[in-house]
Amino acid sequence: MAFTAGVITFPGSNCDRDMAVAIEAVSGKPATRIWHGDAALPDGLDFIAVPGGFSYGDYLRSGAMAANSPVMRAVAEAAERGVPVLGVCNGFQILTETGLLPGALMRNAGIHFVCREVPLIVGNDTSLFTAKYSKGQEIVIPVAHHDGNYYADDETLDRLEGEGQVAFRYAENPNGSARDIAGVLNAKGNVLGMMPHPERMIEAAQGGDDGRALFEAVFEGLSVA
């Protein structure tokens, strides 16, 4: 079947190519590259990735300017129609700023930029994105961010935990995130935001391939749908 994935590029994105390479490595099909100024998305996208980087220089707040760009309005509409959307790192920050995901990403508790591999615990193994992991499984994925400190009020955190929307937790919290949260799903389960970079762990030559199963799950999940 046809699988059409799109990767958004903002001025300042720097993981967009990695994301496109990861998608092609897993699906065998090149991803469509989408420029931030496009007010409309190409027709028939099955999957949209919002990559990492420093969109618009992270002016005002990380992800704040990108969240108000024309293309993100189109992405939000697509997400509301049920199109799966993955936001990684700056992409996660953008998805919270658009309101597609709850909470906010604040400055790391230790102030410093953190760039290293971190162990994660899989918190959900039933979503489109996480179906090829098992709950409680430990995987290793790198983080590289300054603003990864996940915050939401207690009521929201309780709801996320109660509804199985915590996709990944840090086994060793690198940034002060509330309840060790590294990645969250929206209520419908078609939007995932995460600070760690699964697209950087696709094959052994990258130091590990624990991220591959996420892209495989999306590709296979959409292929049987």
Binding site: A64, N68, T96, P102, A104, M106, Y151
Partner: peptide, 9 residues
């Protein structure tokens, strides 16, 4: 509300 402040935090 729309841009200058993030009302979550």
């Amino acid at each position: 509300r729309k841009l200058l402040a993030n009302m979550v935090i």
